[in-house]
């Protein structure tokens, strides 16, 4: 179909590169599976949920506290960040002077690039002592939630602002023309119309929070006991891998790769929900 010989070679090369790029995620999944295989698909597999504790040196591999730690920090961080991101986005888009909105957006763009290790470091030297002076040792679920929510806030706010900007301005103008107040316009028109984008933002930031390592590793205290309170130390799946991988051998190592698979599955569920949501939205748009 290409008239020039060079194009045939060129397209062949491109196809090769595309295949390479598309295969990386399969390779990742495949390697995790092979490394986890000796643990996951042997008599050990069930241990992830039935053992008493996570204590790899004595062959005990209960992953439930760590999974719970991941869920608690993620859900906590998202529920702290969402109201702030939503309120700020509405403020910037509808109530603030235009220069403020623009300034705020560009500041958030810069903040979104701050490495998570800097958030973690700041949490460790500033927030942990602060929480400790209030209650407990400081390195706790609460500190983790605060640092993590701070970390996902900039991107979350940017996505929320982008979602509000997507609402056609004719709708807003029309609502104003009908005499609705700004708040009524936001509540009845802007928010419902941007709901899809907001949900997208929420799922994407949850994916980031669930996979985040450095920030939680540095402030959460990393205990593998069942987390019972806001001031108790917790350990997340990602932190568990980062802490133990350096010295893990044989079955312990395979157990860590299994926990990475668990983490991947959690992330993929979120991404799948996101896609499902996108498809629902596009079919809804197709009908209207």
């Amino acid at each position: 179909m290409y008239r020039h010989k060079v194009d045939i070679k060129f397209v062949g090369l491109l196809r090769l590169l595309v295949m390479l790029a598309a295969c990386i995620v399969l390779l990742i999944f495949g390697f995790l599976l092979t490394e986890a295989w000796p643990f996951l698909f042997s008599e050990h597999g069930g241990q992830l949920f039935t053992d008493a504790v996570w204590h790899p040196t004595t062959g005990q591999y209960n992953l439930v506290p760590v999974i719970l730690g991941t869920l608690y920090t993620t859900i906590g961080a998202v529920s702290v960040a969402v109201p702030f991101a939503l309120a700020t986005a509405i403020f910037c888009q509808f109530y603030a002077p235009r220069w403020f909105g623009r300034l705020y957006t560009s500041v958030m763009e810069v903040l979104a690039g701050i490495p998570s290790v800097v958030y973690g470091f700041w949490g460790l030297v500033v927030l942990v002592p602060l929480v400790a002076s209030w209650q407990g040792s400081g390195a706790s679920l609460l500190t983790g939630i605060l640092v993590l929510s701070l970390m996902i806030l900039p991107t979350g706010t940017l996505l929320a602002i982008a979602a509000l900007k997507q609402v056609p301005s004719e709708w807003i103008q029309g609502s104003y023309a009908l005499g609705l107040s700004r708040w009524a316009t936001i509540k009845n028109i802007a928010l419902p119309a941007s709901g899809h984008g907001m949900l997208n933002a929420l799922l994407l930031q949850s994916t980031r929070a669930i996979g985040e390592t450095m920030a939680v590793l540095m402030v959460c205290g990393n205990s593998t006991l069942f987390p019972f309170g806001l001031f108790e130390p917790v350990r997340t799946l990602s932190a568990n891998i980062a802490l133990e991988m350096a010295y893990a051998m044989e079955m312990h190592r395979a157990a860590l790769y299994s926990s990475a698979l668990v983490l991947m599955v959690m992330v993929f569920i979120l991404l799948f929900l996101n896609q499902f949501q996108n498809r629902l939205e596009s079919t809804a748009n197709g009908k209207s």
Binding site: A21, I28, F31, G211, T213, S238, L256, A260, F268, L271
Partner: peptide
Amino acid sequence: AVAVWVRRSLQLLAGVPSIVVGLFGYAV
């Protein structure tokens, strides 16, 4: 059709937690 799958795969790759990519890099 291929492009749809390529995009999907890249989207997944973007979602893989960095520590897991690190594990993959270590193994490979």
